[in-house]
């Protein structure tokens, strides 16, 4: 399945438009990572634990979006966008959405 954040794919024609597909996941950090982040907040620098956490979560969101696209019979998702929002303290929602299409 082709995932792209552009509206067209060069060299391929869109045969059918199947509407919006989306995937989301809500993740929270664990205490150990939180503690490390608290220490890092004094020294500054990258919070590796958080970076990994958010990366995993984003992959999960994209996978869910792909599943949804596959279930409607699409072979590509175009114009993909990402969005992040914090739901409660310490928990973040990662959201991916795009247009499911059938490419030639």
């Amino acid at each position: 399945m082709i995932i792209s954040n552009m509206e067209i794919i060069p060299g391929k024609r869109i045969q059918e438009h199947l509407g919006l597909v989306q995937g989301s996941t809500v993740r929270t950090k664990h205490l150990g990572r939180d503690l490390m982040a608290g220490i890092k907040n004094i020294f500054g620098g990258e919070l590796l634990g958080y970076t990994e956490l958010l990366q995993e979560a984003r992959e999960e969101a994209v996978n869910r979006m792909k599943q949804q696209a596959a279930s409607v019979g699409a072979n590509a998702v175009l114009n993909v966008r990402f969005s992040t929002s914090s739901v409660t303290q310490g928990a973040a929602e990662l959201f991916a959405y795009g247009t499911a299409v059938i490419l030639e």
Binding site: I2, S4, P10, E46, L47, Y50, Q55, R58, V80
Partner: peptide, 13 residues
Amino acid sequence: SLLVMGSVVISVD
């Protein structure tokens, strides 16, 4: 063509 992404979490001192 494929989607690529990079992310970073960074803290201020």
